[in-house]
Amino acid sequence: MIDFARYRGRFAPTPSGPLHFGSLVAALGSYLDARAADGQWLVRIEDIDPPRCPEGAASTILRQLETFGLEWDEAIMWQHNRGDAYQQALDQLIQLGLAYPCSCSRKQWQAFDIYPGWCRDGVCDANKPLAWRLRSDRGESPIRWQDRLFGDQQFDPAELGDVVLKRKDALWAYQLAVVVDDAEQQITDVVRGLDLLDNTPWQRQLQSALQLPQPRYLHLPLIVTPEGQKLSKQNLAPALAEDEQEVRQQLFQALEALDQAPPQELASEPPATQLHWAVANWSLLRLSPTAHRLNPPSPPAGD
């Protein structure tokens, strides 16, 4: 049982590369929300997809968090050694009739917006490798919850489709792993980017089916490029700064991106000083739901 009076938050990056500015804003938002509530802040490394996780990336991420003064409270959880817990949850869903094996490939159903559920009543081709999917047509509908920034949310899981829980290559999928691990770490508050908002219905459906507590959710506005694209590793967002002065400036810019209106003189202060001010002044009321657009770099002098 989770004690919701005792705040426990987390930052859970996938170690597919170093953190960028968008990652920093998400980490900082979750950190400040936890510390302002006199709560605990944990780090979980979501490394369940080894092909996407180059060697050394996780260590780089942890070093980056330390550089920006974001210190965690407990031992880091690594998803790569959590397979037994995920299998136990999947077995429970199978017994409940909420998970089923699926032989279909994305190429077969790419003409549809979502997977059509062809294997719900029996595997189409038992000779092919099988994934396991969640039945989105069973259980509560619509899924409703109150986001702490974006307010009342309502999704029909059937319109989102039957999400994969375990892949054909036997690797675990994000939706099941995150639900099991949030419960294991007794997370009361999930603070993350808006791009994960539409993942929440699947996660709440899984929490309900597995009789796990349902955290509070705060989805932060995205950081986008000058062209309006989400800042991400896929569009080659640069890694966070390492130079001391640049770290100070970048942390200050992250506070600005979270609409916390830090005083300008704070920009030259070390991370510990900036974070001390930010925790004392953290206000969700200041936070705008509008995406934060990065300014293009200034042209070199003389151009």
Rank of each mutant, 00 (worst) to 15 (best):
P54F: 09
W72V: 10
A301N: 01
P15A: 12
V180K: 08
Q249T: 13
E66R: 14
F150A: 14
A27P: 02
K233Y: 12
I2F: 03
S105Y: 00
H276V: 02
D33W: 00
K168Y: 02
L90M: 05
Q88C: 03
A75G: 15
L285A: 15
N81C: 03
R144K: 14
P289R: 09
T200E: 10
P54A: 09
P142A: 13
A257N: 01
Q88F: 00
P226I: 11
M1R: 06
L176N: 10
W41I: 10
W145C: 08
P226Y: 11
F11E: 09
F155G: 03
Q250C: 06
A89M: 06
W145T: 09
W132I: 02
S105E: 13
G161F: 05
A12W: 07
Y100R: 08
P270C: 08
L218D: 05
D182K: 09
Q253H: 07
R167P: 05
G83T: 06
K107Y: 04
K230P: 08
W282D: 08
E159R: 13
L32G: 04
P157F: 07
E71V: 13
P54G: 07
T290I: 11
G17W: 05
F21T: 00
E74W: 02
G83K: 07
Q249D: 12
A89P: 02
W41K: 08
R8F: 03
I223G: 00
D189M: 10
W277V: 08
F252Q: 05
W109G: 01
D259W: 06
A5M: 01
E256Q: 15
L285H: 15
R286M: 13
T273D: 07
Q250A: 07
N127T: 14
N295D: 14
N127C: 01
Q205L: 15
W145Q: 08
Q186P: 01
A239P: 13
Q214P: 00
A173E: 13
R63V: 13
E265Y: 10
D121P: 00
S141T: 15
L284Y: 01
M1G: 05
L194R: 14
P263A: 15
L231C: 02
A58E: 05
L284Q: 14
R144D: 13
W145I: 10
